[in-house]
């Protein structure tokens, strides 16, 4: 049975991440603004031979090559989008840690708002329906509400007195 290296470490949740030294001193660009852009872009790009690491975090040789490539493109005056487009054209969508919205990733992006709105709607609907059902015996409800307020006061008093020593 082949031993999957990751399964060793995966006991815990640090993955078999190579010990990272990420950006090396010799890579840093002279212009701090450009370097800042490069760092931001690096955080959105995946080191394709690592497990879920951005090229900013990884010390794999490939990550270094990509970091240098990003800086090269920035130095030639390309915009962030142009740099990303270039990398996607070369390495595919896999290189992006934040997938672009397209037909294949529609569900991925839309699920969060759908669950939230759907859940909110379901709650509203449920509440309305139950409210109506309860509305039929309104008289009974009002009586209990009053009594319950009294009972709750009693309980509140009770629990305070109850408290140990």
């Amino acid at each position: 049975m082949t031993r999957i290296v990751a399964s060793l470490i995966a006991v815990m949740f640090l993955l078999a991440a190579p010990l990272a030294h990420a950006v090396q001193p010799d890579e840093i660009m002279k212009d701090p603004a450009q370097e800042g852009r490069a760092r931001n872009l690096s955080k959105e790009l995946r080191c394709m031979v690592c497990q879920n690491q951005s090229i900013d975090d990884s010390d794999a040789p490939l990550a270094r090559d990509l970091r240098l490539l990003v800086r090269e493109r920035i130095a030639t005056g390309e915009s962030d989008k142009q740099v990303l487009d270039f990398l996607v054209a070369r390495y595919g969508e896999f290189v992006l840690l934040k997938p672009r919205l397209n037909l294949h990733t529609l569900l991925l992006w839309l699920l969060t708002p759908l669950v939230l709105i759907g859940g909110g709607f379901a709650l509203w609907w449920h509440n309305r329906r139950r409210g109506r059902a309860a509305g039929d015996d309104d008289a009974v409800m009002q009586l209990t509400a009053e009594e319950e307020a009294r009972i709750e006061r009693l309980i509140a008093k009770e629990t305070v007195q109850d408290k140990p020593v």
Partner: peptide, 16 residues
């Protein structure tokens, strides 16, 4: 589909 995409920190920061 055999298509490979990555979902990493930038995605979660934006949605979560």
């Amino acid at each position: 589909t055999g298509e490979k995409i990555s979902v990493g920190a930038p995605f979660f920061n934006l949605t979560f």
